[in-house]
Design a protein around this nucleic acid. Sequence first.
RNA 1: GCCGGAGUGGCGGAAUUGGCAGACGCGCUGGAUUCAAAAUCCAGUGAGGGCAACCUCGUGGGGGUUCAAGUCCCCCCUCCGGUACCA
Length: 877
Amino acid sequence: MPRYNPAEIEPRWQRYWEENATFAQQVTAKPEGEKLYALDMFPYPSGDGLHVGHPEGYTATDIVCRAARMQGKAVVHPMGFDAFGLPAEEHAIKTGEHPRVQTEQNIDTFRRQLKSLGFSYDWSREIATTDVDYFRWTQWIFLQIFDTWFDHEQQRGRPIAELVIPDDVKELGEDFARQWVDEQRLAYQSDAPVNWCPALGTVLANEEVIDGKSERGGHPVERRALRQWMMRITAYGDRLENDLEDLDWSHGVKALQRNWIGRSTGAEVDFKIEGREAREAGAFPTKPGPDFIRVYTTRPDTLYGATYMVIAPEHSLVEELTKPENAEAVTAYIQQAGMKSDLDRTELAKEKTGVFTGSYALNPVNGEKVPIWIADYVLATYGTGAIMAVPAHDERDFEFAQQFNIPIKAVVKPADDVPAEEAAKILAGEQVYVAEGVAINSGEFDGLETAQFKEKITESLAARGLAKQAVNYKLRDWLFSRQRFWGEPFPILHELDDAGDKTGHVISVPEDQLPVDLPHLEDFKPHGRAEPPLDKAPDEWLYQEIDGKRYKRETNTMPQWAGSCWYYLRFLDPKNDQAPIDPEIEKAWMPVDLYIGGAEHAVLHLLYARFWHKVLYDRGVVSTPEPFQKLVNQGMILGENNEKMSKSRGNVVNPDDVVSEYGADSLRLYEMFMGPLTDSKPWNMEGVNGVFNFLGRAWRMIVDERAEELQLSEQLTDAEPTEEQLKTLHKTIKAVSEDITKLSFNTAIARMMEFVNFFTKEKTRPRACIEPFVLLLSPYAPHLCEELWYLLGHKETLAYEPWPQHDESVLVESTVEIPVQIGGKVRAKIKVAADADRETIEAAAMAEPKVQEFIAGKNIVKTVVVPGRMVNIVIKS
RNA sequence: GCCGGAGUGGCGGAAUUGGCAGACGCGCUGGAUUCAAAAUCCAGUGAGGGCAACCUCGUGGGGGUUCAAGUCCCCCCUCCGGUACCA
């Protein structure tokens, strides 16, 4: 009984594809035919194995790729592994086994699972970010970034060699100049706080800290400043934002990125501290100097309403501005603020807190004295770390002013559509008004619109050297180092003095000495010092002597993001040992034409990868300004109960189980049939059974299931198709082909089900209809279709058979049935020639007895006829 | 709070971008086949009313535009995702 048996068919075809290297793609500088680079976000190979969420996006790209090959395109469709990560390191700490061991086991599992689903990956391109041959080039790219500074005038990154050191810097000596240069690099060092856990003797990642305690063991965690590597992604803020425009990405993801970059325009304004030296008119200085506090504001038009100032607790002027009589309160406040985590400072802070310094500043527009406060609602890391507070027109300032009884002065007249009662409250300083409007109480500027006022006031202050236009970003520089073992080592050496201490000079490891591999460690247990684990490395690894100078290797490692920032390039040329990618190949194959993955990477991964890409673009390594032309985020697959799948909920579906029960084709087909790719949707095992039945029906449409031996159904003939059969075929070809370009796989499958429903009922099934159908279905259910194709007498894989073309002329209907509405309700249907004109259709409608019945005794107001569509008779009773 | 996405039968979802709401699948009901079951095949299946032909209502709620609204406009509600004192 030759039933549809995926367990037998699928492994056989998987072997065939592997043995014949069916999907290996020659990637050369001159692709044959149009190129298609379709990329999946490569997975982190966790110990849990593949999740049913993975194959959703993977099947989508696979369908696109399989169809594209049949359409004659040159297709690159690779897969690899983002394999550095915390779990493997934790396992290593526990067991003493090298994290590489477990990582490779996990990769083996993932690879096996992926292969069992029949994806048409070119496995000869497989890479893992943990491969030494791979991270050699991750290190190389780091060195490019390290060797780049950002020229703000030209808005691009340039080699350090082209950086001109200003004379005033040069005068300060070689050491200082060198330090200055280092400060300009896109990869630079800085002190940044980390989560140090003394009990565990290690630094923890943010996600390992819960409520100020370590996730493991619940030990206290302190924030401690540590020397770190940073990447100057903020320099590329404008380009990262502007270049989104031309990308074929969803509106939502673009908005997410814009929001994350958070560009705002406004002004920097200097407020003189009371009793200090005034400034002579001139250019706005780069630094405010000791006599001024610099603030950033997006609303310089509200300057007349600034009734106090706030500096962040970490602001450099805190000590200086604090009067002796306020010192005690200030010290207490700062200590308290320092103990709060970032979270406490935001989420919990319903009530505003702050403390007066005792000092005043002078409002530059009117010379009024404004008190200077310290409050933690002002962030040290944004803008200048200080603000002018305008309580009448800013919600936070309003809350604070109410709390501390600070005057609230309205300087923007509420718009006309604000109710009079509210407007009165606003003018009286009893309610906050943040919208734009017309200036009041602003001296000579009264009556100006917000936008105009902003410009005027900035100009006016700029003329006195007290302000300039300024741009700010929410985006922060990227904290690029991790205190971990299982990551890429930095190709950086620190110069040591005679005493063995770091001099502060760093040099890059010469290119020909890459890669810097990870050292051998006896075990992976924390060493208890607040230094990275690599500090445990043997001296041979740790120390180097070059030209008589001793150096110590950088012992931080790179974050997991690093490897995924450029893997899409390496896939095109994975074995190249001269360069990360051959420039000719890069030119021919980039950008990625279709990139599919989870929405969880909509911000960070995509922003980081775009940033690296832009640096590589500036440095001439790549030829396109953007890496991913089209991006699609698949929706989440939920459990049967409509909740997120998770171990704790016990609703996780394992793809292996689905494959063994129904086969890979059914899993693929089901995931595509569930609903639109981008939607979240719940899993339903009955649904898998449904598509499995469909595949069985397709099988029986072609194969005689009742015969003893495997043979084609007797209903399958070489007869000429009937007109109706041809129509069904071409309708299906058209719909399925169009749906693939729209990534609307669920509807394509529905059309193919209709095809099978139709032909199952046909007594004869012409080969001329059935064979194209097998090709149409093959991207979705490749194993079944290869088998059917073979049974139909073809000896070669169908992977490169020409894609069926539909014939529009077959689809033209001679007559159409259209509805006749009376008063907007369908009352009858008429058959008319497809190309009938209005008059003919109207006459036909009027002649219909049903219509007559309905319009009897009524006035016809008008008749709307849409040829080929419908008739609507509007009546009045 | 803000930003993004979504609300259509018992369920997952279709609907040519303003033109017959509910394609396709699941589930359910009935029938054929069978000693029986599984599998398979056929038919029905938005709700309410009617013996029927048919009628009325119906796309989260309320208003509006239109000959015609799931689709466009205004207001509101709910759910999901992201984000959170960014001056």
